[in-house]
């Protein structure tokens, strides 16, 4: 009998993934779950939103991730005077060629860190979100494909909200997962304070993967086996969001599909060759938390609802 933890075909690929995961874990210690979620979002072909305070390592995470994946990466610091063109790029008239030439913006990278996305105006935000959704950029009527893989890690500071434009609820589901990093544990913080900065490790980091292999992994994740009971479980969770009294609207069928996909990706990240309810459970809060909009009077937020649902839905 096979153990759930042994890998199937494509063993070298899985090993590369494991190595990439290990590398990132080396730089950002003690945050395995967030790293796994980030990898899951990547391998499910989605994007990640990190809501947390500055200084907990969002940037480092994005940087480490992009380095491990081996693509090129860009960081965009969002400010209120930013225009869509600052992100997407502009068409410039070249005198030499007597024609317009497209100068790509920072979005043209495999991994894009969109820092403090809530500082930009809604117009700028929606330019980014549209590009994320479509995987392409249209400037002056011409369409430019974004590189593959294309993975956006956006961050948002939930506290300092004055003079900002928090992403509207309806746009939040452009991100596959939303998560928090959280403070390091006491022991880890102590190490941070006493030991040399781990960010220095970034310089010597060897990429374990390359964009092509990431695309292969994404394909592999899509084929991962999901058994009937796990599908039952996913359906039960989705149904529970729809009947929960504190929620305005439950998860959409598209979200359900995303849940399956993410659970598969997570299984792949965890080196499994089939999907377990545990994978579903792990990704569910990150996937559902920002999609569920509780009614104001309930006094709950989406994460609390998601936790309640997980706690009260039996695993088939």
């Amino acid at each position: 009998m096979n153990k759930p933890s042994t890998a199937r075909s494509g063993a070298p690929l899985a090993e590369d993934l494991a190595r990439a995961r290990a590398t990132v874990n080396e730089i950002i210690v003690d945050k395995g779950e967030v790293i796994d979620l980030a990898f899951s979002a990547l391998l499910a072909g989605g994007h990640l939103l990190i809501e947390d305070l500055p200084g907990v390592g969002k940037t480092t995470l994005a940087q480490a991730l992009s380095l491990a994946v081996g693509g090129d990466w860009q960081r965009i610091q969002f400010t209120s005077d930013m225009l869509p063109a600052d992100i997407l790029g502009v068409s410039m008239f070249r005198r030499e060629g007597e024609q317009f030439e497209f100068r790509p913006g920072p979005i043209f990278a495999n991994v894009v860190l969109a820092d403090e996305i809530n500082r930009a105006t809604p117009r700028t935000q929606s330019a980014l979100l549209e590009a994320m959704a479509e995987g392409q950029v249209t400037v002056d009527g011409r369409t430019h494909e974004l590189p593959r893989p294309f993975f956006v890690i956006a961050t948002q500071n939930p506290l300092d909200l004055t003079g900002t434009y928090p992403l509207p609820d309806s746009q939040l589901d452009r991100f596959l997962l939303r998560t928090r990093i959280g403070y390091p544990s006491a022991a880890e913080e102590r190490r941070l304070l006493t030991e040399p900065d781990r960010r220095n490790l970034l310089k010597d980091m060897e990429p374990s993967l390359d964009p092509n292999r990431v695309m292969e992994l994404i394909g592999l994740a899509g084929e991962l086996h999901v058994s009937e009971p796990v599908l039952d479980y996913i359906q039960a969770l989705v149904a529970a969001t729809r009947s929960h009294p504190a929620v305005k609207a439950g998860l959409s069928p598209r979200a359900a599909l995303a849940l399956i996909q993410t659970a598969r990706a997570h299984a792949l990240v965890m080196q499994q060759d089939f999907c377990l309810p545990d994978n579903v459970r792990t990704v569910f809060p990150a996937l559902a938390g920002h999609r569920l909009q509780p009614v104001a009077e309930s006094g709950m937020d989406g994460d609390a609802v998601a936790a309640e649902i997980l706690e009260s839905t039996p695993v088939p």
Binding site: P245, E297, S298, G299, E308, E311, S312
Partner: peptide
């Protein structure tokens, strides 16, 4: 039985304590 809680109300209003 799970999640016993009540959302805050003003004094003088009945508290709706709920549980799953």
């Amino acid at each position: 039985l799970r999640h016993g809680k009540a959302r805050p109300v003003h004094a003088g209003e009945p508290v709706e304590w709920r549980m799953a």
